[in-house]
Design a protein around this nucleic acid. Sequence first.
DNA 1: CTAACTGCAAATTCTTTGCATTAGT
DNA 2: ACTAATGCAAAGAATTTGCAGTTAG
Lengths: 153, 153
Amino acid sequence: MPCNKRRWHGKFREYGYRITVGRKEILDVLTNSKGHLSAEEIYLKVHEKHPSVGLTTIYRTLDVLVGIGLLQKFDFGDDRARYEIIDSVNEKGHHHHLICTECKKIIDYKDFIDEESEMLKKTEKFLSEKYKFEIKKHVMEFYGLCSDCKKRL
Amino acid sequence: MPCNKRRWHGKFREYGYRITVGRKEILDVLTNSKGHLSAEEIYLKVHEKHPSVGLTTIYRTLDVLVGIGLLQKFDFGDDRARYEIIDSVNEKGHHHHLICTECKKIIDYKDFIDEESEMLKKTEKFLSEKYKFEIKKHVMEFYGLCSDCKKRL
DNA sequence: CTAACTGCAAATTCTTTGCATTAGT
DNA sequence: ACTAATGCAAAGAATTTGCAGTTAG
């Protein structure tokens, strides 16, 4: 994915951020993961290749990435933030989430994504006018019990 | 709101929970508030009338209320949980949120709520069949900059 | 060279828990 | 009476911060 690499290199320059080994590896992990990773999970993966990178750097880099719009931060109610590379950067494309409140499993879905996105866009337009709000992101999620937990309980 | 009182009294009995001074006051605060209060905010309000009620009780009661389905727990990304009495209990009715990521202001909106809810219901039905998921709640929110913060920055 | 970046350890903040006491039913 | 509920202080857990040493450009 050379175009991704170019994309974030550009963003980094633009904002005056430096490109370091740690940051490269973090971006790599995020790009090649299935998404919704926690800081700790990212730390562990990065640690495999670069044991010198500490958890603090992970947090700080994630902040930077969210700040320059390469990453989206989520909260699925399990007391830790989760991160996903934004849209065009990975091949997965836009999706929404289905979250099991028991085992914390997260399912990505794209069904109805176009219809949903259209609805969201329309609402977004209306709300931004009505409330003079500059909308930066939307969240649409479903919480419940996955099939396994439903059986188990 | 006598019917609300009857409603939760019933729920409490049903689950074998006792009705205490603290719990009554917490329910009262939640019912008469504009929603999306944090545990601390609830604590402060309850504290005005019943200084003997501690923060721990607030947390424990909120858990109970969420458990029996009288309360919904939210996370708007400001590192503290926020709570809202569910639908039929208060007169506000179902609504969604518009959240300012700068000043943390939360705006309730009901525009398109029917259309949105219909869409959500449809998606919900589809997803629950496809993934054998038992969907308990949905979240639809917009994050961005409110008019004040947009100006200020 | 110099300002950004880093790791480490300590600090913060929200929430939970253990335990002895109090109070619904 | 019996057991749930409570307050308090201590514990936990995720994230942030201060600082002195390191490194990218």
